[in-house]
Design a protein around this nucleic acid. Sequence first.
DNA 1: TAAAACCGACTGACATGTCGGTTTTATAGA
DNA 2: TCTATAAAACCGACATGTCAGTCGGTTTTA
Lengths: 196, 196
Amino acid sequence: MGVTGSKAEHRISKILDAALEVFSHKGYRDSAVDDIATTSQTSKGGVYFHFPSKQAIFLALLDRMADLLLSRASKSMAAEPDWPKKGDAALATMLHTFADHRNLTRLFLVEALGAGREFNQKILEMHITFTALIKDYLDTGVVDGYIAPLETRIASIAWFGAVNEVVTRWVLDEEPGNLEDAYNPLRELLRRGIGL
Amino acid sequence: MGVTGSKAEHRISKILDAALEVFSHKGYRDSAVDDIATTSQTSKGGVYFHFPSKQAIFLALLDRMADLLLSRASKSMAAEPDWPKKGDAALATMLHTFADHRNLTRLFLVEALGAGREFNQKILEMHITFTALIKDYLDTGVVDGYIAPLETRIASIAWFGAVNEVVTRWVLDEEPGNLEDAYNPLRELLRRGIGL
DNA sequence: TAAAACCGACTGACATGTCGGTTTTATAGA
DNA sequence: TCTATAAAACCGACATGTCAGTCGGTTTTA
């Protein structure tokens, strides 16, 4: 074992990788815990030793993606000094991260929604987290005088939705193009939408 | 039986109503065909006489919603003579229709996505249908000189996504506010986004 | 009187989570 | 270093429950 991760953590990571593989390939409901066990080269008992339920595995996966996105976006925003460029950086980072993890993205944006009523709360939380980040950003822009006052609550939801849909279309497409090609037109649209 | 609808159509309609009730309450996967049969005051055999499978019932429901939205939106756009108002009318109609049919909306926007891989194609088709409508509208705006040329493909997807997210948030919210309150800020945002 | 519509018990398939038992790993004492 | 032993990790058959779809038979309609 390297510096990071005990044996258990390593195993958990392997199971999560397998779960991602299986879930993103067959969807949440059509995936059996046995599939995950087989793919992760362990057994059902082994999986259940580390996770209390199938649901918990899925939730862990969602958390993983949210953390990844959030930390990357925050970092790239922090690296930019002036306000408008922070937004550009976040958008670019998001698209880049999604493009790099199509499976995780599919899970995050597609499977999660219909996986079951149990997940609605979680998904809502995630959407709220992201839109809150955007809203903070927009509010700062207003306070600092970069943009005129506007309904930042709706605007942040709309921004999130716009990006969301572009990415979702790319995920659902059987022969997806290059997601990052959407960066420029999307950026333009979003900026103008808030009067930048 | 009234002017419209044979006995069979009436029955089918009853089953679809029941299916909507059940699906939107428990989600696609957690709903049993027996539930639909009971709710529609018929039997499983009766349901299977009119529909070949559970999946077909769901698909029929999605078609119903798409037709409803599309026809209403088209009608309200046709009723407005000048270009910018056509868009406003369509947005208002959409929000109004969603607000009026929260269950159908939940089915359309939330359940459908994760109901299973089998539905991805269908959903993609619907998204494409809607964005195509928006794209036509935007292209007309460009041709008629209302707005400067822009990437209407991405713009239409972003528009759709923005509306989609606002509505989805309202659907997922346990104590939803008034969806139509979003009309004004959303309209402003979308219009400005394309430079109107 | 035939066809259409409807009924509901039944089947087959499948999947989650459990549990008794086995293997591996960590630790401590001689 | 070697061994004893306890705890952690792992295994997979099975108990349990669920449900989509079927089918022989019944009722309604034309």
